[in-house]
Nucleic acid binder design. Sequence first.
DNA 1: GTTATAGGTAACCATCTAGTTACTTATGGA
DNA 2: TCCATAAGTAACTAGATGGTTACCTATAAC
Lengths: 120, 120
Amino acid sequence: MNEQQLDQVFLALANSSRRLLLDLIAARPGCTLSQLQAEFSISRIGLMKHLQVLLDAGLVMAQKQGRERPLYFNPVPLQQIHQRWGDQYRDFWASQLLRLKAAVEQPEHTTTELTTKDLL
Amino acid sequence: MNEQQLDQVFLALANSSRRLLLDLIAARPGCTLSQLQAEFSISRIGLMKHLQVLLDAGLVMAQKQGRERPLYFNPVPLQQIHQRWGDQYRDFWASQLLRLKAAVEQPEHTTTELTTKDLL
DNA sequence: GTTATAGGTAACCATCTAGTTACTTATGGA
DNA sequence: TCCATAAGTAACTAGATGGTTACCTATAAC
C-alpha cells in the first residue's frame, strides 16, 4: 500500500458518517444505499458522496445488479494498516508510559504541567 | 475516545507529511521542529501547521523549554484505535476472503469483473 | 406502457486544507 | 549589548470537503 492509498484510507475513516456507513455495510453485506438511508440525517446525495470516498479507498466493493447496487465491506486495507501500525509501534505499545516517563524526566520537568491525563 | 477525537486522529494520519513527521518524532523523542526541517521540502510554517494537527489529535506532546520546544510521540490514541478496530473487525480478518466469496457467489456474478486483485 | 423506485449528474455554496511570504517575539550566546 | 536562532502570527491563495437542490437514467412492477 503506497502513501497515497494510505491517505485515501485514513481520510475515508476521518468522518463519523463514513465510519457509520462502513460499519453498516460490514454488518449487512449486500445491502444497498437506499436501505441504509434511514440511518442517516443527511441527503441521499451527501450519503452517496461518502460512499464514493469509501469506494475510492477500497474499503467497500460494489457490483451493479439491475437497478440495485449491493455493497460489500472489504477488510483488506484496514487489515494491512492494522498490521503495519502494529509492527511499527509495537515497542511503544509494549509500555505505553515510556514516553510520559521520558518527558517527565527532562531536567526542566518542574516547569511543565504534563500529567498522565494529558496523554489520554 | 469520542467520534470527534477519532475524526481528528484519522485526519491527522491522512497526510504523508504528517505521518513522516510523526514517525520522526517517535524515533527521536525530544527533538524540535527545526531539527526535523531538513527532512521536509515544505516551508517551516507549513510544517508547523502539520505539527499543530498532530498536537490537536493528541498524537504528539510538546513542552516549551526556553526558546526550544521538544516534541514527544504519544502512542495512546493509536493504540486505542488499533485495539478498537482489531476487536470490531476481528471476525473479518480471521478469514479475509469471506467477503470476496460472498460477492462472487451472488447469482449474477457472471456479469461482474470482481477479482481478487480488486480487493487488494 | 406507465409509473414508482434505485441510482447517478450537474451545479452551487460555505468552510477547511495545505501551502506560501512577510513580519514579530523571545531567548541563548559572543 | 547585539546578533543569531527557535518559535509564533497574520494574511493570502488554490483546491478539497461536506453539504445542498434540481434534474436525468434505468429498471422493476403493475
